[in-house]
Computed example of a mutant assay.
Amino acid sequence: MLRGWAEFRQTLTILSELGSYLLNSVIFVAVLLFMDGNEMENTALFGTGITQATLAMPGVLATMLVFGGIVSMAQLLSTDREDGTLLRAKALPRGTQGYLVGKVVSVSLITLLSMLVILVPAVLLIDGFQFTVQGSLTLLWVTALGLLATLPAGAILGSLFTNPRAIVGVLVLLLMGLMMVSGIFFPISMLPEWLHWVAQVFPIYWLGLGMRSGLLPDTAVVEEIGESWRTLETVGVLGAWALVGLLLAPIVLRRMARRESGSSLEERRHKAMQRIG
Results as ranks from 00 to 15, higher is better:
220 A>P: 03
215 L>G: 00
174 L>F: 14
200 Q>G: 01
23 L>K: 09
34 F>D: 05
145 L>F: 14
66 V>C: 01
269 R>G: 13
89 A>Y: 15
49 G>T: 07
175 L>P: 03
164 P>V: 09
73 M>C: 05
26 V>K: 04
196 H>Q: 12
121 P>N: 09
60 V>H: 05
108 S>M: 03
80 D>R: 13
42 N>Y: 15
138 T>E: 04
24 N>T: 14
66 V>R: 02
64 M>Q: 15
174 L>S: 11
34 F>E: 05
170 V>Y: 10
169 G>A: 08
181 V>L: 13
2 L>Q: 15
81 R>W: 05
164 P>W: 12
142 V>M: 02
196 H>I: 12
169 G>R: 10
197 W>A: 11
175 L>I: 13
127 D>Y: 04
195 L>A: 04
28 F>M: 09
60 V>D: 02
225 I>H: 09
268 R>V: 01
89 A>E: 10
238 L>R: 08
40 M>R: 13
213 S>E: 15
116 L>Q: 13
184 I>K: 04
144 A>C: 09
122 A>R: 06
270 H>R: 15
129 F>P: 02
1 M>K: 02
267 E>G: 10
220 A>W: 10
183 G>C: 03
224 E>M: 12
241 W>Q: 08
266 E>R: 15
2 L>P: 00
60 V>G: 00
172 V>Q: 12
137 L>W: 10
39 E>D: 15
23 L>P: 01
9 R>E: 06
273 M>K: 11
